[in-house]
Design a protein around this nucleic acid. Structure first.
Lengths: 231, 231
DNA sequence: CCGCGATCGGAAATCACGTTCTCATTGTCT
DNA sequence: AGACAATGAGAACGTGATTTCCGATCGCGG
């Protein structure tokens, strides 16, 4: 496998990663297998947090989870699959937490705003600063996501689906409430999601670093304007 | 160097890549050295176009330019430096070409619009479709840029400076003409640049692929709104 | 034209990973 | 207990980046 291919592996079927990985085990041993898969995932999340990035080897994951390389490749088709699994898990967890956070708001536009600013903060912050969740991998996985986007949009999409669907729901609520006029909610959702996550990743391709750390509010202001809301 | 480090190398001094690379040669041999460095760069651009990505090895570059590995490492600190050099060159070339393109417009807002839509197209298009320039690497280098952003914002910034400065100038023209009210032009420029380039890279973290290929005009509409212009 | 030191091409040697494979051990189920 | 699946340990492999080695060249003062 070439270095480039590392970003473009065959990630297998569309089925949720957990099923995919566990299905390899016989039925009776299923729970045991699930636990082992989970250990790999937990170890990976720990490593991502510690290094604040994907700078760890498969060996590290194996060692950290007290299992063997052999087992690793029995449950995952490779490092890319592991990362995809972690990413999917992060998106899933993020959407759940986000949904809870949103419960405190009733105004459609405010809910939308809360979604954007919260996601933005999660995407910018150091994992350590936002303890309450496994979705913290969001930021650290930006380049993994970009690679996935480049080689397999379909998977990138389905993995991000939880967040996308939530955002879409918020946009449609806002639209129905009359606060927003959207020609194509889905397209807007995609635009918002990517803009928020990638800009958060590093709001500074130009300019001096401190002065250009756009705050979550600024990001929101940019987005409301972009989708035709009132600034 | 680990695989991870490949994304986080020490890219050396801030001086322009050409000087950096050539400085290693003795003074009298300078022109000869410049020519050889250029051959490496040209070969790299060719390879990027052919593969539409960074899927080539240092060996490929060496072979293509009819030089030796030894020479390569004499002129560049590594593959990352080579890519940085190519990226810088692309941004430089892109800003020059863009400036020429802009000459056909006089209205500040239209010039801004032309900047965004053109950059967007360059960022989305297949290199082959847009023959007239070396800046075509823009899109193919998205993940390199992201990696650079992660490990060395300063370099990512200086490398993108040509485009950033041009955009900043356009924003300030628009502001002075009264077509726009910007609290912080620099921040807006950074936001626009990143939004345009990354969203172009793949406008579809959610939704079906065909329906979600946002056009350059849609991107522009989103951005004008975002910075408070009239949609 | 000669000879020396800076350079250079060619290719083997290193290294760090991801991925695969072998073999002996441990468990599980009956 | 016996048969077999699931493992752990770690060697083995393949690909690429980066280094190192060695003999061939090149440029130039004498």
């Amino acid at each position: 496998m070439t270095n480039a291919d590392a970003h473009a592996p065959d990630l297998g079927s569309q089925a949720p990663w957990r099923d995919r990985a566990v299905a390899r085990s016989l039925d009776g041993a299923r729970s045991r297998a699930e636990e082992r898969v989970q250990r790999f995932l937990d170890a990976t999340v720990e490593l991502i947090r510690e290094n604040d990035g994907l700078d760890f080897t498969v060996q590290d994951v194996v060692a950290r989870s007290n299992q063997s390389l052999r087992s690793f490749y029995q449950f995952f088709d490779g490092k890319q699959h592991l990362l995809l699994a972690v990413y999917e898990g992060s998106m899933q967890a993020a959407s759940v937490t986000l949904l809870e956070t949103l419960a405190s708001e009733t105004d459609p536009m405010q809910r939308l705003r809360l979604f954007v600013t919260t996601l933005y903060k999660w995407s910018v912050a150091d994992p350590i600063e936002v303890p309450p969740a496994p979705h913290l991998a969001v930021r650290s996985m930006a380049d993994f996501l970009l690679g996935l986007l480049a080689t397999d949009r379909e998977k990138a999409r389905s993995a991000s689906a939880p967040l996308f669907d939530l955002l879409l729901k918020l946009l449609e609520e806002a639209k129905e409430s009359g606060a927003l006029t959207l020609a194509n909610p889905r397209r807007s959702a995609a635009l918002i999601l990517q803009t928020t996550m990638f800009n958060a990743y590093s709001m500074n391709v130009g300019g001096d670093s401190e002065a250009h750390e756009a705050s979550a509010e600024e990001m929101w202001a940019f987005i409301v304007g972009g989708i035709g809301g009132r600034p």
